[in-house]
């Protein structure tokens, strides 16, 4: 099932988050928006590393991947993205 949210991050930019979830596993995720991330390619790799993780691990996995890549975010934070992600999981039908 495809989940999607467009959220203005408090004191930040506009996050457009799209995720495909199957049986509790994240099959694809797109973290888009007008935020800044340095280095940009590190953010790409952190985002790609989220594929095939259980949805419950989004917060810790995204945060760890961004730290591993040394990514600095402006207008968005790993936790703010995780808040939006967890909120949109409520759209999933009850298991």
């Amino acid at each position: 099932m495809t989940l999607r949210r467009i959220v203005k991050i408090p004191a930040g930019k506009l996050l457009k988050l799209t995720a495909d979830v199957e049986n509790g596993v994240l099959k694809s995720v797109a973290v888009r928006g007008d935020f800044f991330a340095h280095p940009e390619e590190g953010f790409d790799r952190a985002e790609e590393s989220l594929v095939d993780i259980p949805v419950g691990e989004f917060r810790s996995a995204f945060s760890a991947a961004l730290a591993r890549e040394g990514v600095e975010l402006f207008g968005l934070s790993a936790d703010a993205a995780a808040d939006v992600f967890e909120e949109m999981l409520h759209d999933l039908p009850p298991a």
């Binding site: 457009k16 797109a30 973290v31 888009r32 928006g33 007008d34 935020f35 991330a37 940009e40 953010f43």
Partner: peptide, 9 residues
Amino acid sequence: LGYFQGLDE
């Protein structure tokens, strides 16, 4: 477009 933006979006 910004680097992190979706074209079709």
